[in-house]
Each structure stands twice: as C-alpha cells, then as structure tokens.
Amino acid sequence: MPTVSFTRNLQRHLPAPTTAATGTTVAEVLAAVFAEHDQLGSYILDEHGAVRPHVVIFINGRAIRDRTRLSDAVAPDDDVYVMQALSGG
C-alpha cells in the first residue's frame, strides 16, 4: 500500500501519523487517511476537495500535477508526502 506522511509542522496542529493507505490516485489515498483522521481533511483540502493554496503534495518527491481533482496516479510502493509553506526566518 502507498505510504502517506506529513510535515512535522502539520503534526503540531493535528494528529497526522504516517499511514499506509489504499487507493490508486492521490484523492483515493487521502480519502482513506481522512476516514481515520477527519480533521486533517479540512486542513489540507478546501470545501471543493482541491489542495489548499498553502499546501503541496508530492509523490516520490515530485509535486503532483492536479491540485484540483487530485487525479495523479499512485502506485502501491509510492510515498505520498504532504507539506505546507513555512513562514519563519
């Protein structure tokens, strides 16, 4: 199963453990994670299901192309990583 992990700064706000999740697209994989951690969903996706503008999602270190429908394909061994912009300096 694909593995989904989150930046540690996101984990400061919400429980966001690294999770193995079923699915063949980013949308399906995240839906599986959000089924267990529903608060995460509204933080990462907007009310239309698109990636919020301060969040970016990677598959094996490459940014996804479809931020609106999350249709990028995910293979069983893929690593999905969710991060957000940082502000400090």
Binding site: N9, P53, V56, Q84, A85
Partner: peptide, 11 residues
C-alpha cells in the same frame, strides 16, 4: 503555494 495560509493556520 498559490497563496499564503490564512492567519492562524500555520505554525
């Protein structure tokens, strides 16, 4: 990141 996060939503 097309837009910055809303206030209070980022560490």
């Amino acid at each position: 990141w097309p837009d910055p996060p809303a206030a209070g939503t980022s560490p």
